[in-house]
């Protein structure tokens, strides 16, 4: 699989030329399912604070790539380094802890737990780290425009509000990297734009890097870099143009 830049890079430095070690490094990453290659030879660097969009057709392996980065899947070849940690080398418990500490997730289908209140949903990452912080939760809810709705149940919120809850949950514990898998896919254009603005603002505010998988050109346009996964055979490589 090949990733090629589709849009001019934004100001901020040539892609790939970094003075310090990138936050995320993928080298010659390869993954197959039942003798079917999904991708191979994938190389990618993402810096701290960088907002990268990943576009591509459905079924091309974007979510699989995210899973490999998050330690939810083990690549068949290559390496994944997150903040200097070799992710595939970790055992299952260590990967889970890594996700708790360093990663945040936003999904297309929101995935807000229906039996927890809004503030409990947002607080989950903090509770998992055994560091409850009600003030931080309130701060983040306020930042995403949901102040005062902390006691409500998800069933009482709109789609846009639910996605903002998911964004708040993704940033509340100040992760190093946020993985967003088509976060505006279930939203109307106007709501999607507002949610995207919140996501971008919170990513910038937290100083986190973000890898955004999207079909939306508008969403991709908000990124510092846009990369494309294209089906070009099993020898295709993920390329990052300078």
């Amino acid at each position: 699989m090949k990733i090629a830049p589709t849009m001019p890079q934004r100001a901020g430095g040539a892609i790939g030329h970094h003075a310090r070690v990138p936050l995320l490094q993928l080298r010659s990453l390869a993954k197959s399912f039942a003798d079917t290659a999904v991708f191979s030879g994938v190389c990618l660097d993402i810096d701290r604070g960088e907002f990268v969009a990943l576009v591509g057709e459905s079924g091309v392996g974007k979510s699989t790539l995210l899973n490999c980065i998050a330690g939810l899947e083990s690549p068949d070849a290559g390496s994944v380094s997150l903040d200097g940690v070799d992710v595939p080398a970790l055992d299952e418990s260590a990967r889970a802890r890594l996700r708790r500490e360093r990663l945040g997730f936003v999904f297309q289908a929101f995935h807000v737990l229906p039996h927890l209140s809004v503030e409990e949903n947002v607080a989950l990452p903090l509770l998992l780290r055994r560091r409850p912080d009600a003030a931080r939760v309130a701060e983040v809810l306020d930042a995403v425009g949901l102040a005062g709705l902390g006691r409500r149940l998800p069933a009482q919120l709109s789609g846009g509000q639910l996605q903002r809850v998911a964004i708040a949950r993704a940033v509340v514990h100040a992760p190093a990297l946020i993985l967003a898998d088509e976060p505006t896919g279930n939203l109307d254009p106007a709501t999607a734009e507002r949610v995207l603005s919140v996501l971008v603002a919170q990513v910038r505010e937290a100083g986190a890097a973000c890898l955004l998988v999207t079909h939306s050109q508008a969403a991709a346009a908000r990124a510092d870099r846009v990369l494309r996964l294209t089906p070009s055979g099993i020898d295709a490589r993920l390329a990052v143009a300078d």
């Binding site: 998050a70 939810l72 299952e92 418990s93 889970a96 802890r97 890594l98 996700r99 708790r100 500490e101 990663l103 997730f105 999904f107 289908a109 995935h111 737990l113 989950l124 990452p125 998992l128």
Partner: peptide
């Protein structure tokens, strides 16, 4: 399944 998948993404181990 989706709920459990989310919990895994959030960092719960299999045992948890």
């Amino acid at each position: 399944r989706k709920e459990f998948g989310l919990l895994a993404h959030l960092g719960l181990t299999r045992r948890e």
